[in-house]
Design a protein around this nucleic acid. Structure first.
Lengths: 214, 214
DNA sequence: GAAAGTATGTTGTAATTACAACATTTTGGG
DNA sequence: CCCAAAATGTTGTAATTACAACATACTTTC
């Protein structure tokens, strides 16, 4: 198991190596690898597992019965997912979780939190609070990206956020065209088309997943 | 101050009356009333206040420079808002918070958490974790309501959720037409029009904010 | 209970998006 | 290097939505 990524995670912030090893045991840490496209969780499932991505990345998505996909979030290396469902274990998942690329996930049993001593548990809970709080901001930021009525507005809203996060006008985004379209809730072809227009209008330059705001 | 609503809140679950009174003091609880339409927070503000609605309701919204409003969430009596910003006090708010109707809000200083003793604080943090986790589910449920590409799909997605929550095919929604339109990210007139069509098609019955799914 | 104000419903047209079909480019094996 | 497969770009048409303008219904206040 790739311990080093876990050691730098928010969840184990403030814990030393020994404590982390013990915690991993106590929480029945289990690692699993997935190929790109594999489904890790399906809508309707119940889980008490807090999930941590140690390699690759996964998408949190909603797939309707007509095959339309909406990507709610992309969870990369070093980040957590399913924390809400793990902590509210009677709530069935509303989303699917898929491997966006080949990836490795570590599962931690939140049911086992009850067996920990008070001090350790409350330190863990404080860290969990940071995780859920940040996830909250992440979820709402998608709302801003999809709030504009027009495609160009959504693209700009999204690119702006990334640009601010990366402190640069030039950056790579973690999505391919189809994923970006599904994230912004627009047609892939319309997205491609609009990106072309925006380049012609001198707003941006882009090639594949590399973007530059002008 | 309306103590009874606070006593039944998730935040103070497990605390007795004496403890709650002391906590309210320790967290500098302050109450404020707002008239319908008043702005409680504006995008860009910084706050460490956990906010609790003791009467009325507020909307969490994003207003762009062209006057388009997107309602991300409606926070009613007995619920909290701004918890993410209160807990990450260096992050400026991305949203506006407005009084959806005349309302009363209690502000609790999260900065003051540091002054509490360990036991009390960790009990509070555990409750805060519940609040943020539930808020997470709430935020993602809006994503499902806006995921369908067409207006009818969005309306149905939303009405289904409410129907399930209220365990009934007949219910009131907390939005007026303009608010519902802003929540579903569609034009108000298009929404009204589609609701009429859906009634003609025998899918629903509705009058003002009262709905029945057939 | 009128009048004014607000909320909701209706309609037509302009603008935008969805969808399908196809062209082009890129990628990864063999 | 070539081929096949995947990803991205382009285009045209049908369908949907945005927007404005107006009609109707409901509320509030005097």
């Amino acid at each position: 198991m790739d311990i080093s990524v876990l050691h730098n995670s928010i969840l184990f912030k403030g814990f030393d190596d020994t404590e982390i090893s013990e915690l991993l045991k106590a929480l029945n840490a289990a690692e699993k690898k997935y190929n790109k496209g594999a489904m890790i969780f399906s809508s309707g499932e119940i889980t008490d597992k807090l999930c941590f991505v140690t390699a690759g990345g996964v998408t949190i998505e909603s797939n309707d019965m007509w095959g339309n996909r909406t990507i709610l979030n992309l969870v990369g290396k070093g980040q957590f997912f399913a924390e809400s469902y793990a902590l509210l274990p009677d709530v069935p998942m509303l989303v699917d979780v898929c491997a966006a690329e080949d990836c490795t996930v570590v599962f931690l049993s939140m049911k086992s939190l009850a067996n920990l001593n008070d001090t350790i548990r409350s330190r863990l809970l404080a860290n969990l609070l940071t995780i859920t709080t940040r996830k909250n901001l992440h979820l709402s930021s998608r709302s801003f990206h999809t709030a504009p009525r027009q495609v160009r507005g959504r693209i700009m809203a999204y690119l702006n956020t990334v640009s601010v996060q990366k402190h640069s006008h030039e950056f790579d985004i973690p999505f391919d065209r189809q994923q970006l379209a599904d994230y912004l809730n627009v047609e892939r072809s319309v997205l491609s088309n609009e990106l072309s227009k925006m380049q012609r209008d001198g707003l941006i330059r882009c090639k594949k997943s590399h973007f530059e705001i002008i």
